[in-house]
Amino acid sequence: MGAQENEEDAAPPPEKKKQKNSKEVFFSVLPDRYEPLIEEVEEEKETPEERRRRKEEKKRRKKKKYKKYRKNVGKALRFSLCCLMLGLQNMASTYSAPVSAVVTGVNLNACSKA
C-alpha cells in the first residue's frame, strides 16, 4: 500500500498548478533631442608612455613610503633591543652582587645613539 500512496503524491493535482500572470510593463517616451550617453573612450585613452610614467611614479611613492617605514621600525627595534640588554645586565648584576651592595641607575645613554 505504501507504493500506491507514493505514486499518488508524485503527480500534483491540476488545481495546484501555478497560474500564468501578466506583468505590468512601463514605457517612456524619449525626448526629441535625445543624445545617448556614450563615454568618449578615444579622448581618455592614455598612451603607453603616460601609463608607464604613472606606474613609475606610483612605484616611487610606494618605495619612499616603505623606506620611511623600515627606517622607523629599525630605530624602534634597535632601541628596544638595547633596553632589553641593559635590563638583563642590570638584573644579572643585581643577582650576582652581594645583598648589601646597592646598584646604581641604569645608563640609557648607550641606547639614545640608536
Score class of each variant (00 low, 15 high):
Asn6Tyr: 13
Glu8Leu: 15
Ser112Cys: 07
Ser22Pro: 04
Lys45Thr: 14
Leu84Met: 13
Lys16Pro: 00
Met91Gly: 05
Lys68Arg: 07
Phe26Trp: 08
Arg54Met: 08
Ser93Trp: 02
Pro36Gly: 04
Lys45Leu: 15
Gly105Gln: 15
Phe27Thr: 07
Lys62Thr: 05
Asn6His: 13
Ser80Ala: 15
Asp32Glu: 05
Glu7Met: 10
Glu15Gln: 12
Ser96Asn: 05
Asn109Phe: 01
Pro14His: 11
Gly87Phe: 04
Ala101Leu: 15
Pro98Gln: 11
Lys62Tyr: 03
Met91Asp: 07
Leu84Ala: 13
Lys55Thr: 03
Glu49Val: 04
Arg78Ser: 15
Lys20Val: 08
Ser80Arg: 13
Thr104Cys: 04
Phe27Leu: 13
Ser112Ala: 12
Val102Trp: 07
Ala10Ile: 10
Gly87Arg: 03
Glu35Trp: 02
Arg52Ile: 09
Ala114Gln: 04
Glu44Phe: 11
Glu40Ala: 10
Lys59Leu: 08
Glu46Met: 15
Ala11Phe: 13
Ser100Arg: 05
Lys71Ala: 08
Lys67Asn: 07
Gln89Glu: 14
Cys83Val: 13
Thr94Gly: 04
Glu46Phe: 09
Asn107Asp: 15
Lys63Ile: 01
Arg60Asp: 06
Glu24Asn: 06
Asn109Ser: 14
Cys83Glu: 14
Gln19Ala: 09
Ser93Ile: 02
Met85Arg: 12
Pro14Arg: 13
Ala92Gln: 07
